[in-house]
Design a protein around this nucleic acid. Structure first.
Length: 138
DNA sequence: GTTCTCACA
DNA sequence: TGTGAGAA
């Protein structure tokens, strides 16, 4: 546990793989797997991996994307949009299109989830009504 | 505890 | 999309 005494918001804080694994409730194996897939690129201190706050954010984004059903490749696409590695105006226009497209897909996904939740509300209401009716006849 | 690689689903 | 095992 390096930087035990450094404030967690310090920009040069680093994390070990086990710290991040514990924090995000994944195995160290999983974090190495993400690295192998090119989703993160931690620093090295000899053989040991050292994760920067930026690496930590990337892992957080990966796991968030995963929770909403995105593939790792899709996570990469979204994460890369945060990267200001694009410079010329043609690339920037292209990025705006990508963001627009991604936004549209997220919005559709949100509408789908809302509809599914509404469906669950109906099912639950029916169940509760059925229980209440059964109670009346006993 | 961490690294890597190979196999496996 | 990961996990488990074995060896270093």
């Amino acid at each position: 546990m390096p930087d035990r005494n450094r404030p967690s918001h310090s920009p040069d804080t680093t994390y070990t793989i086990s710290e991040l694994a514990k924090e995000f409730e994944v195995t160290t194996r999983t974090i190495r797997f993400y690295e192998e897939k090119g989703l993160i690129a931690p620093l090295r201190q000899g053989q040991k991996r050292l994760y920067t706050p930026a690496d930590r954010v990337r892992i957080k984004l990966i796991l968030r994307g995963k929770r909403i059903g995105m593939t790792l490749d899709e996570c990469v696409e979204v994460i890369d949009m945060y990267d200001p590695a694009h410079n010329n105006s043609e690339q920037l226009r292209s990025l705006i299109d990508t963001v627009r497209d991604r936004r549209a897909r997220f919005l559709q996904q949100r509408r789908d989830i809302d509809d599914m939740l509404a469906g669950l509300d109906e099912v639950q209401a029916l169940c509760e009504q059925a229980l209440a009716d059964a109670g009346d006849t006993q």
